[in-house]
Amino acid sequence: MPRLAVEQVTKTFGVNGACLRAVDGVSFEIEAGEFVSIIGHSGSGKTTLLSILGGLSRPSSGRVLFDGLDVYGLDGDALSEYRCEKIGFVFQFASLLPALTAMENLLLPGGFRPARPPAGEAAEKALELLGLMGLRDKADVLPSRLSGGQQRRIAIARAFMNDPSLILADEPTGDLDEETEAEVMGVFRAMNERSGATFLMVTHNTELARQAGRRMKMHRGAMLEL
């Protein structure tokens, strides 16, 4: 059974009275542990597709199966639990909560779990992840005092806090310089090998997409295998 199966997923939006198909009958499968990239121009529907896969936006039609479970057959709270337990998001913008320190940002997702991990255990894991990102000494620092690259690495660490099976990364290096971009990709590959989590990364950067084990392309809402 594939980790993720996408069956004829379509998402339409009404724009000025017209119907816009952001995702148009997309189907594909991803096996557990795969590192997949989806490349496409801005507006090709990549982020919308990622939101659908992550349980953030209900498709207009079609199904998303996670380990055989129909994600959109779940009700509101169960869908939140799906996101909390199974999915780790890495967004295209600096996504740390500004009022919280690096450590608190990492502890935040644990608080949403139905069965909260023991306090000491969560803190230990957060410190371990910060150590992996080389930011253990920044645990008590607010995001405003961190560089863009440091913020991005903390956001990646946070995505792993609940041991997700699927990491969805949306333009994870969009606003980073080449050196930091390479650093982030290195972290991704290391985490993919270390945790065995499945990675799905969308990007418009062809070079970045090539580093994935498998590549797909989105064009005007439709999916092409490369």
Binding site: L56, D77, S80, R113, N162
Partner: peptide, 15 residues
Amino acid sequence: REIGLMRAMGAKESH
């Protein structure tokens, strides 16, 4: 945006 982020991380409406 923060609320959207929290929802993406698994926060329920009740959280």
